[in-house]
């Protein structure tokens, strides 16, 4: 990889200032960015590590019951500390990558990257979570804007993610076994005001809500409720791991599994 300057600020304000410089790039756990830099697909002049900022670490519960996760919290910490409050979210975190990756990779890093096959975007969109940055709060429905594209401005930092806790939820991932990314992953969450269904891994536009399934499941929360519903293959990802048609089919299969497993 090309060389760069490395800084590790201790406060969000210092990190934001460092990211204000030309050629600066935020570094979370580095589990995607460092491999990308090794391939010389990215060559920032300065890496600003966000892992030395105590106020961006850890899990807490807000007064309204929402689970708040610091932007620099590793997946392994979410898996362990969220399990009692929001098991579906903890379960998702506990199956990202492998144990060593989960000890480094962060929720904010995953969301800022918005890989179309990453797990976390489906939980954030499926929970109607709020992405909190150093300057504003962004609703999940506004945050994801296509493959590797988000509402974040240049240098904006995800400081926290707030998840309202559903009555029931489940994430079901059909794993691509070499990468352990989702070939297709579906996050289903049932709230008092309706059901949300978010699909990752499938669409060329990145994570999306399957609104027909949401309507059917809001009326009748059972796997049978989505019998006959299909997602068009057009616009799905087709690659050597699975065709567009295969992924479109998996969306239905994984949604049913998620509804059946929701707890």
């Amino acid at each position: 990889m090309y060389n760069f300057d490395f800084v590790r600020p201790k406060t969000i304000a210092d990190a934001a200032a460092a990211l204000g410089h030309e050629g600066a790039q935020a570094l979370g756990g580095g589990q995607t960015l460092l491999p990308t830099m090794k391939q010389r697909l990215a060559s920032p002049e300065t890496l600003v590590s966000l892992t030395g900022i105590p106020e961006m670490q850890g899990v807490c519960k807000a007064d309204d019951g929402a689970i708040c996760i610091g932007g620099a919290t590793p997946h392994a910490v979410v898996a362990a500390e969220v399990a009692a409050h929001y098991p579906a979210l903890a379960g998702l975190a506990s199956h990202i990558g492998d144990p060593a990756v989960r000890n480094r990779g962060t929720i904010g890093g995953s969301l800022a990257n918005n890989d179309p096959s990453a797990c976390y975007p489906s939980a954030v969109l499926g929970s109607g979570a709020t992405v909190v940055t150093n300057t504003r709060q962004i609703a999940a429905d506004d945050y994801f804007q296509g493959m590797f594209t988000t509402a974040l401005h240049e240098g904006e930092i995800i400081t926290e993610v707030r998840f309202p806790v559903p009555e029931k939820a489940s994430y079901q991932k059909f794993e691509q076994p070499a990468s352990r990314f989702a070939l297709v992953g579906v996050f289903v969450a049932k709230y008092a005001d309706g059901v949300r269904v978010a699909v990752t891994g499938a669409s060329e536009e990145g994570v999306f809500r399957w609104t027909e399934a949401e309507e059917a499941l809001s009326a009748n929360f059972s796997a049978d409720a989505i019998n006959g519903l299909t997602v068009p293959a057009d616009g799905m990802i087709g690659d050597l791991h699975g065709s567009k048609e295969y992924r479109a089919h998996l969306v239905g299969v994984m949604t049913k599994r998620a509804v059946a497993a929701a707890a």
Binding site: F6, R8, G30, Q31, L34, A76, A100, V101, N103, A178
Partner: peptide, 29 residues
């Protein structure tokens, strides 16, 4: 592998297993 797949480089940092090929030396300060 140098691509964080193989795990031959796993070490413990503050007691946690990490892939030393996908962490900067400066991050271990």
């Amino acid at each position: 592998c140098d691509t964080s797949q193989c795990g031959a480089c796993v070490v413990h940092v503050n007691g946690k297993a990490v892939k030393a090929c996908t962490m900067l030396a400066a991050e271990a300060e």
